[in-house]
Computed example of a mutant assay.
Amino acid sequence: MIIQRGWGILVVPIAVLISVPAGLGTRAALGPSFAAFGVASGLAASALAVYFLGQHLNEPRSSDHRQPNRPGTGRDEHILLSLPMQHWGFVLLAASALVLVVRLV
């Protein structure tokens, strides 16, 4: 199992640097009972950022149009825990939904 390759490790700091300030800002503005909504919205925003950054980084290069799945062509080179970076956007979106469900239950 590959832990990380390329810029895949950026998933973690992007998620933390967006969701933590969103949660703290929401807590400061609306009170502690609304902090989970800030964290959830921060996770959703970081999901979008990670998805589009992963799409950009893992797209095939222009010189690879003849053999798009050839190793070393730039396709899925940026991974974290064996998932391409753009797929982590869906994981972060699911985490955002989980935070909301846990908060509301």
Score class of each variant (00 low, 15 high):
G42L: 10
I9E: 03
L81Y: 07
R66L: 15
V50C: 04
V16K: 01
A47K: 04
A44M: 14
D64S: 14
V91S: 06
F52K: 00
A15F: 10
S82H: 10
R70A: 14
S62I: 12
G54D: 00
G8M: 11
D76M: 03
H65I: 15
I9H: 07
P68M: 09
S19L: 13
R70V: 11
A44H: 04
I79R: 07
Q67W: 09
L30S: 06
A29C: 04
Q67D: 06
S41W: 09
I18G: 03
S33P: 06
A45S: 13
V50G: 02
A49G: 03
S63L: 07
R5K: 15
L53W: 07
S62F: 11
M85T: 01
G23K: 06
V50R: 00
I2Y: 08
G23S: 13
S19I: 12
P21N: 10
M85S: 05
G6T: 11
A44W: 08
G23T: 09
G89Q: 04
D76P: 03
S46K: 07
G89E: 04
G8A: 10
A35H: 01
A29S: 08
G6D: 07
F34Y: 12
P71Y: 09
H65R: 13
L48S: 11
P71H: 08
P60W: 04
Y51Q: 05
A29N: 04
A15K: 07
R70T: 06
Q55V: 14
A44V: 12
I2S: 11
R66A: 12
P84H: 09
V39F: 14
F37I: 11
F34L: 12
P21D: 12
H87K: 08
P60R: 13
H56K: 09
G31M: 10
G72R: 05
S41H: 05
I18Y: 07
L43V: 12
L57F: 06
Q86D: 05
A35M: 13
S19R: 09
L24A: 13
I79T: 15
G72Y: 05
V50W: 01
V12Q: 04
S62R: 10
M85K: 01
L10S: 03
S63R: 01
P84Y: 10
P13I: 13
V11C: 02
Q55Y: 08
G72D: 03
I9L: 15
I79E: 06
G38V: 09
A40V: 11
R75M: 11
V12C: 01
I79F: 04
A15P: 04
R70L: 14
L83C: 06
V11A: 05
R75Q: 05
W7I: 08
Y51G: 00
G23Q: 06
E77S: 06
G42F: 08
G31R: 06
F52Q: 03
G89K: 02
G72N: 03
L43E: 04
L17C: 13
F37C: 06
L43G: 04
E59T: 12
V11H: 02
F90V: 12
L53I: 15
A36P: 00
P84Q: 08
V20P: 02
V20N: 00
V50N: 02
V16I: 15
A40Q: 04
A15W: 09
L17W: 10
A22M: 11
I9T: 10
L81H: 00
R70Y: 06
I14E: 02
V12H: 01
L83M: 14
A35Q: 09
A47F: 05
Q55P: 01
H78T: 07
F37M: 12
V39Q: 02
M85N: 01
A40E: 00
R75A: 08
W88H: 04
P60E: 05
